[in-house]
Design a binder for these strands. Structure first.
Lengths: 178, 178
DNA sequence: AATTACATGTAATCCGTTACATGATTGA
DNA sequence: TCAATCATGTAACGGATTACATGTAATT
C-alpha cells in the first residue's frame, strides 16, 4: 500500500488535514504498522486532489497557515475500494533488535541482558499506549486492530521475559566445532 | 542497522558469499525481520572490503563466475562489536493487511473474512518455515530468534482465528452518528 | 522445454526522509 | 526562556529496489 492509498483510507474514517494525518500515523492506531513524514504526506494530498480522489476546503485561521481539510470524493471512495480488493503485500518487519540478538556471540552476556531489559520496557510503553487508544476508540475496526497490536506486544514481552535466560546463560553446552 | 552492519553480523556467523547472504536474508532466520537485494548487498561487500572490515578470497568454479567468499577481519569484528553497543533503532513494522482492516468499513464483510483467511494461511506457512529452521539450527542465538518468531506468528494466527467474528459481524450496535 | 538455482555486478529509478523555510501560541 | 504544538510546503539527499547484463547446470 502506497502512501496515497493510506491517505485515502485515513480520510475514509473522517475528514482530516495533512497535519492530522501525520499525527495519526505517528501516534495513533496506525503507529505500530505504518509511518510517513510531512515530506511524503503533503505531496500525496496534492496529487490526490489533482486526480479528483479527494477535495479540499480551506479554513482560515488567525496567524496560522490556512488549515486545509481534505474529504474523500465518490471517485476517491471507489479508488479506495478497488485498492482494498487487491491482496495486501506481505508485511515488512525490520528489527535491529532481533538482528542484534542473532549476533549475540559477538556481544557480552551483560549487554544482551541490557538489550532485552530495554526491549521489555519498550513493549511496556507500547502496551500502555495501546491501552490508552483502546479506551478512546471503542468502535469496530480500530478496536480490533489495537487489540491485535496489544496481543503482539504482550506475546513479545512474555517471551523475552520468560526466555531471556536461555540466551544469557553460557551456551557452551554445544561443543560442535568440527 | 544499515546493510553493512547486517553483512558484518552475518559474516560473524561464518564465511559466506554475497549470494549466500542474500539467501539467508530472503529465506533463512533473518527473513521475518530484515530484507536486502543483490543491488544493495554486493556494493556493501565491496565497500566493507575497501574499508578492511572483511577480506575476500576467490574460489574458481567451472563455468560460473568466481565464488567470492568473504570473512570478517579483526578490524571488522571490532566494528561489529561497536555497532552492537549502540542501541538498536525501534522496529519498523509495515503491514498493508492491518491497514486494510482499519478501513474495514469500506470493505464488504465477505472480503474481510477472505482477507483474514488468507492471512491465517500465511501465518501457517510462516510457522511451518520457522519450525523447519528450528530443527536445522539448534544452537543458542538463532534458536532463540526463531522461537521468538514462532511465538509471534502463533499469537497473530490465534488472535485472528478467535476474533475475526467481531469484525465480520455487523457492527451496527454503535449508533454514534452525531 | 522451461523454470529454478547458481553467481556477480551496475545503472536507472523510485520512494521516502531530513533539512530547510516561516511563524504564532501555549505550556513548562 | 525554551521547547513543543500547530500548520504547510519544497528541495536535497540517501538508500534500496528493479531492471539490465551474462551464462551454466540441474530439475521439473
Amino acid at each position: 500500500m502506497d502512501i496515497k492509498t493510506l491517505c485515502l483510507g485515513i480520510l475514509s474514517l473522517g475528514d482530516a488535514t495533512g497535519y492530522e494525518i501525520k499525527k495519526m500515523v505517528a501516534e495513533g492506531s496506525f503507529s505500530f504498522f505504518s509511518e510517513a513524514s510531512f515530506g511524503s504526506i503533503y505531496p500525496a494530498l496534492t496529487k490526490l486532489t489533482e486526480q479528483g480522489f479527494i477535495s479540499c476546503r480551506s479554513e482560515t485561521q488567525n496567524n496560522r497557515p490556512d488549515k486545509k481539510v481534505y474529504s474523500l470524493t465518490p471517485k476517491g471512495i471507489k479508488e479506495l475500494e478497488e485498492a482494498l480488493e487487491r491482496s495486501p503485500k506481505p508485511d515488512k518487519n525490520r528489527s535491529e533488535f532481533l538482528a542484534a540478538l542473532l549476533f549475540a556471540e559477538a556481544i557480552s552476556p551483560a549487554r544482551i541482558q541490557n538489550l532485552i531489559d530495554e526491549r521489555v520496557e519498550y513493549h511496556a510503553r507500547q502496551i500502555k499506549m495501546l491501552e490508552d487508544l483502546l479506551s478512546e476508540a471503542p468502535n469496530g475496526a480500530s478496536r480490533f486492530v489495537v487489540e491485535y497490536g496489544l496481543k503482539m506486544q504482550q506475546a513479545a514481552a512474555t517471551f523475552l521475559t520468560e526466555q531471556s535466560h536461555t540466551l544469557t546463560k553460557k551456551n557452551n553446552e554445544s561443543p560442535k566445532e568440527k
